[in-house]
Design a protein around this nucleic acid. Structure first.
Lengths: 226, 226
DNA sequence: CGCGGAATTGATGTGCATCAACTCGGGTGG
DNA sequence: CCACCCGAGTTGATGCACATCAATTCCGCG
């Protein structure tokens, strides 16, 4: 990423590797003071904002190589909770050290700006999904997102296990559990994928891609503003 | 914001004030190269992602004091378009100069990180709105958001003009124009506000606040996960 | 004065939430 | 090792919030 070997070493020296965490463990909770950014090494994490009555809004799922906590910089306090979905290895990066280091290493500073900016872009994607896509487009988008992120990390893009529950998927996508369940069976019936519990095998990536763009049957769908 | 007078001057020296822009003018379009951040001085701007067939998704409305373009840092290219809604004054800040400056002024770098992080937090708010709120909660949230942002800038929080059309409001909130229109009349009938075309007067802020939290009639609404 | 886009209002349709019943699998304790 | 249980997932029936369609009305502007 444009850092000299020396710089990489300096950056590396402030990163702390922790022992593995297990399903249900919290990285942090809403309201906790902000000191570290976290990077998923292996496993997966979900971030969410809990509400008093036990309900929650799932904000995202984080796979290996992805970073968690950027939203807490401004208030010095975490505004969501993070819980690991399966046995996972997570690195801690003390933000004050990172900030200091980025003053001395312009290319690191640049990377930080890009990282934060990318996060904004991703949120925008999600916003479009929730504002304009129907249930089937949402699930297709979700599956292809997971697929692409796994592929980038060298995992199979077409054969993987979902570490989160149907309930969590539905919550994340703004859908009811039952709708998610029905869509999985429908997608399977249509030959788009094979699903057995948490094990997913994507079969027809092309048609899934077409779905994401809301162009099933080769035309824009009924919503005039698309 | 924690900068010395000297630093403020240095920052000020790279900011360029432009002549006023008029309704319909573009600050930039999707795909344009990224060189500047923009700050609204007076007036208002909307950002949106256009789609081939003339449709669009409105991403946000930007009032005086607010910054535009942070999402373009990562790709060096704007991934949305920005168009002014009314005669507006906009400042340009060359990002490369700002980045350079922030290397020398740690507190400026810190502000930049906070600014980017805040943008992420705001997107998260919007995400919650679209995933979990019903039409009436969405419009109430929108109106209170505008209200609060105007108040922070010294304008009236209860009496203002909306520079955007009902169509744009609906698009932004993920609702049909007709729904927005119906809600305005309903809110007025319920004594929450007075509306006459683009002129809005908020009357019962307390009840509007209650609506935002989904606690109309003093209880959580029907959705079990709230 | 008359045109056209924006806004309102009403009637109708539908996608998905909700409610309810059932199945499945995995973990626990006897 | 099996019986039981309980949460997760599936499937079906029903309802409703909001989109869509359609018809006016209401300005702003030439």
């Amino acid at each position: 990423m444009g850092l000299s070997p020396d710089d990489v070493e300096r950056l590396d020296s402030i990163v702390k590797r922790n022992r593995p965490l297990h399903r249900g463990d919290h990285l942090f909770r809403e309201g906790d003071g902000f000191r570290f950014l976290y990077v998923v090494t292996t496993g997966s994490v979900k971030t969410y904002t809990p509400s008093e009555d036990g309900g929650e809004q799932v904000l995202g799922f984080h796979l290996p190589g992805e970073i968690i906590g950027l939203d807490a910089i401004q208030s010095e306090r975490h505004c969501c909770s993070a819980r690991v979905l399966e046995t996972s290895a997570i690195c801690e990066i003390p933000f004050d050290r990172l900030e200091e280091l980025s003053s001395f290493i312009p290319s690191l500073q640049h990377q930080m700006y890009r990282l934060l900016s990318r996060e904004i872009g991703q949120d925008t994607e999600m916003l479009m999904l929730l504002a304009k896509k129907n249930a089937e487009e949402r699930l297709a988008t979700f599956l292809l997102s997971i697929s692409g992120r796994l592929r980038k990390r060298g995992f199979s893009a077409t054969d993987f296990y979902l570490s989160m529950s149907r309930h969590e998927i539905g919550n994340y996508l703004g859908l009811a559990v039952e709708t998610v369940s029905r869509l999985f069976t429908r997608f399977q019936d249509d030959g788009l994928l094979h699903v057995e519990r948490k094990h997913i095998q994507l079969i027809d990536l092309v048609r899934l891609e077409a779905m994401v763009n809301g162009t099933v049957n080769g035309g824009p769908n009924h919503r005039h503003w698309k």
